[in-house]
Amino acid sequence: MTGENGQISIWYFIGCLLTIYGVLITGSGIYELFSPPARPVVLAEFHAAIWWGLLMLGGGLTYIYFFRPSKDNK
């Protein structure tokens, strides 16, 4: 499960999903920055979607980099 035996690592899959989610959630947060909702959530001024999305994006890209399938495994 860690990339041995020609198998793509589980962490690589997780990295891909986190990257996609990070882009979507950060994008959603940026959109809200310029177009605030009529009924904002509590602590909306913290813009949690932006920093949480960026955190997921950073984590996802890190996982993709470190657990990407090697040439030997292709």
Binding site: S28, G29, V41, L43, A48
Partner: peptide, 12 residues
């Protein structure tokens, strides 16, 4: 969840 999570985070 409804108190703190806006669009995107709510889906998560």
């Amino acid at each position: 969840m409804a108190r703190y999570l806006g669009p995107g985070l709510l889906g998560l």
